[in-house]
């Protein structure tokens, strides 16, 4: 068995356990906490722990992208917005009225989790030859410029559209007078 196979079929390292624990722990905090700022910081923790998991799987490129885009840009954007708008912690208002809603959400999520956990055993064990399983940055570049050329360009267009959209949305109120 080579190293790449060992990373999938072998026992998890201590580092993986720690990263997994923190990923789940912070995800739980996002769900439980009523304070938006705690949620944002916990989201950051989850994203960072996931990046650590990618690193421990040997997938350095995706891990670095995860930190750069998710933890470095998206999570910071969330923190920025929560701080800028100064969102206050929200009390659980009208709890009896919302109880069916909570129960139903819990039921759906619980069933989903149960179903998904059943599928883990269906995943085949890694085979002996896993030499080509982890892509390097160069291989990604080759894929994106040959096989996935069209999706890559489309994604570029999407980001361009998002930039324009964000600028228009952010500056829109300057153009016309607001009535209210």
């Amino acid at each position: 068995m080579n190293q790449a196979t060992d990373l999938i079929a072998g026992a998890p390292t201590v580092f993986m356990w720690v990263a997994s624990f923190f990923a789940i722990f912070f995800a739980l905090i996002v769900f439980v906490s009523s304070n938006p700022i705690s949620c944002a910081v916990a989201l950051m923790g989850t994203l960072f722990s996931t990046a650590a998991l990618y690193f421990s799987l040997g997938n350095f490129f995706v891990g670095a992208i995860q930190i750069l885009v998710y933890a470095g840009a998206i999570a910071v954007l969330f923190v920025f917005i929560v701080m800028l708008l100064d969102l206050k912690p929200q009390k659980l208002k009208n709890l009896p009225g919302r109880l069916p809603h909570f129960l139903f959400s819990g039921l759906v999520a619980g069933l989903l989790a149960l179903f998904l956990f059943r599928t883990i055993d269906l995943v085949p064990k890694a085979t002996e030859d896993s030499s080509a399983s982890i892509l390097s940055a160069t291989q990604y570049a080759q894929y994106f410029l040959s096989q996935y050329q069209v999706p890559f360009q489309a994604a570029g267009l999407l980001v361009f559209g998002a930039i324009l959209g964000a600028i228009v949305l952010a500056r829109g109120h300057l153009g016309k007078k607001e009535h209210s």
Binding site: A9, M16, A27, A109, L112
Partner: peptide
């Protein structure tokens, strides 16, 4: 448990907590 199973479990937890949120 194998590493694959651990990773999939973490992914399921993340997905379900996300859905609940």
């Amino acid at each position: 448990i194998a590493t694959g199973q651990l990773i999939f479990s973490v992914a399921i937890f993340l997905f379900c907590f996300g859905a609940l949120t």
